[in-house]
Design a binder for these strands. Structure first.
Lengths: 107, 107
DNA sequence: TTTATATATGAAAAAAATTTCATATAATAA
DNA sequence: TTATTATATGAAATTTTTTTCATATATAAA
């Protein structure tokens, strides 16, 4: 059973794609700029951007040989809500020792 | 690099856990009731609940041999925001043919 | 019209998440 | 006590997602 919820989380619920959305919150950026800013490998970034585009979180336009990405206003709002929540609950979230417990150092 | 964002999405960004949070939006429920309502297999549900608990999205209390789960008000708000967004963009999201393209029937 | 730059694509490899399964525990009832 | 119900745990199997890699395309510059 696949519904919109799955697509939403597939696109949205990922660290790098969320970072991309946050970066695009302030300003339009082309792929190369995102790459430098976020230190994501070129092909990964390209895959992530495609995913975000397909789920309509962002839009693109061409300019010379660059492709300039822009976040949609609705996406921006949602990203801000979620960011606020994460910030507020940071300490609790970091205490989660179920998932990624080794990395979190709490066995 | 693991930060609060990862923990947030690990717990929140999953279909079944999101369904659990939605069910708990209306009323407190024990594990058995959630199981019936959502048709999630017992051990899976238990793992999911543990994950949600650890990331502080929900709370539990004991009552006899049952464990009654309750969503936190802040989580509820966020779930509502996200639900609204998913509903609004449902058609776009369903058109996403990058992820899960076979299941979506659009090759 | 070749070369360089910016970005995209697709398949295979690797990593991570989810599911399954066998079993454990805790509380109540018989 | 022993049995039963409700739920949790941990490890192995499976599935899904992410990353890597090799290559393609499109635009502009030389």
């Amino acid at each position: 059973m696949t519904d919109a919820t799955d697509f939403f989380f597939d696109a949205f619920g990922n660290r790098n794609r969320f970072r991309i959305l946050k970066s695009l919150g302030n300003k339009e950026l082309c792929a190369g700029e995102l790459q430098k800013e976020l230190m994501i490998e070129q092909t990964n970034l390209s895959h992530d951007l495609k995913c975000l585009l397909n789920c309509q979180f962002i839009t693109v336009r061409k300019s010379g040989r660059k492709r300039i990405y822009k976040i949609k206003p609705e996406t921006k709002e949602l990203v801000e809500e979620v960011s606020k929540h994460i910030k507020k609950y940071e300490l609790y979230l970091k205490k989660c020792n179920i998932i990624k417990e080794e990395e979190n150092g709490e066995i």
